[in-house]
């Protein structure tokens, strides 16, 4: 099992803020809109560097999405910033009609996704956003795993034409990936193995690597693959891995319904039906607590990944 040194510990939202500033420097057409959460989204540096290209829209997310769609007409590349809950469920029809169906080059950037938002509780802990967004035709969905990957993804989405949903989070987590090793739609193999394929996204990627070490101690050789782009899914990488290992575990900070696990289960069912188990929230809302407490209570951690891996291996024929 390969070891990944922790470079430092940072929040993924800060990776977004850093990437946005760099994208703004690289391309004068990049504009940013924020619905009264500039500090939370770490958009302050962009706002300070490019005041003419930063638009404070107030607590009015529907208008923000509609205006972003309008800004693309004339060649602007708008990045919208608010919490994941208000970036998706609150504005789903605006995204569907004015952005996705209209084919607009809007980057919907969503922080504080999932349980790790923590103490604010279930009103803000969206666990359905990946499902909603991946269902929209043409929408690209990216859920990076650490600061470096979020920064790289933010810069990358500025360079492609079309609507994107970029999902990141609030807590400080290990930063361990190589910023230069990111390509939209391309899975990253963190460890090659032969016994089980573990496909993880977002905050669960570090947990998957920790699970890989625990499994190695048990003599199990796990393949650890980071699926940062949930749509379009890197079907070739996934199918290649399971052809070797014969089973799969998925891990994500999202509902089982509509998440990464659901996408991979569909892929396997249609192409190579094999045992699969999922680490995800199972049809439940979250609650208040610290991020660590919540991830443990809802089974979104390395221990759960190990349990599912042992279980799925036992189902192999």
């Amino acid at each position: 099992m390969k070891t990944y040194p922790i470079i430092d510990k940072k929040d993924t939202r800060s990776g977004f803020g850093a990437g946005l500033s760099e994208a703004g420097k690289e391309n004068p057409n990049v504009v940013a809109l924020c619905a009264d959460l500039t500090g939370s989204l770490k958009m302050d540096a962009f706002a300070a560097a490019f005041p003419d290209r930063f638009i404070q829209v107030g607590i009015a997310e529907a208008n923000m999405i509609g205006m972003a769609a309008g800004l693309t007409i004339g060649g602007k590349i708008p990045f919208t910033g608010t919490f994941a809950n208000f970036s998706t469920g609150r504005v789903y029809d605006q995204i569907r009609q004015s952005v996705a169906y209209s084919g607009k080059n809007v980057k919907i950037c969503a922080s504080h996704a999932g349980l790790t938002l923590g103490e604010d509780g279930a009103t803000h802990q969206i666990l359905e956003d990946i499902g909603m967004m991946k269902m929209l035709p043409g929408m690209i969905v990216i859920n990076p795993c650490d600061y470096n990957q979020t920064k790289a993804a933010t810069k990358a989405i500025a360079k492609i034409d079309g609507p994107v949903y970029l999902r990141f989070g609030r807590p400080v987590v290990p930063n361990f990936t190589d910023e230069n090793n990111f390509e939209i739609g391309k899975a990253i193999v963190f460890n090659e193995g032969k016994d089980v394929s573990i496909f993880a996204t977002g905050h669960l990627v570090w947990q998957a690597i920790e699970a890989g070490h625990i499994l190695a101690e048990k003599g199990i050789d796990a393949e650890i693959i980071n699926i940062h782009t949930i749509k379009p899914l890197d079907a070739a990488a996934i199918l290649k891995s399971v052809a070797k290992t014969g089973c799969a575990v998925t891990a994500e900070e999202h509902q089982m319904n509509g998440g990464l696990g659901d996408s991979i289960a569909q892929l396997l069912a249609l192409n190579n039906p094999l045992p699969i188990e999922m680490v995800a929230v199972n049809d439940s809302f979250g609650e208040s607590g610290t991020p660590e407490q919540l991830m443990e209570k809802y089974g979104l951690n390395a221990a759960s990944i190990v349990d599912k891996a042992l279980s799925v291996i036992s189902r192999k024929k």
Partner: peptide, 27 residues
């Protein structure tokens, strides 16, 4: 046609966005 419309209440936001785009382009 520059935007899909039909689900009501969205066109004004799109227009305001397009108006800001004009200003940013000194158009």
């Amino acid at each position: 046609i520059r935007i899909a419309s039909g689900s009501l209440g969205q066109g004004l936001s799109v227009g305001v966005g397009a108006a800001m785009s004009k200003k940013l382009n000194n158009d």
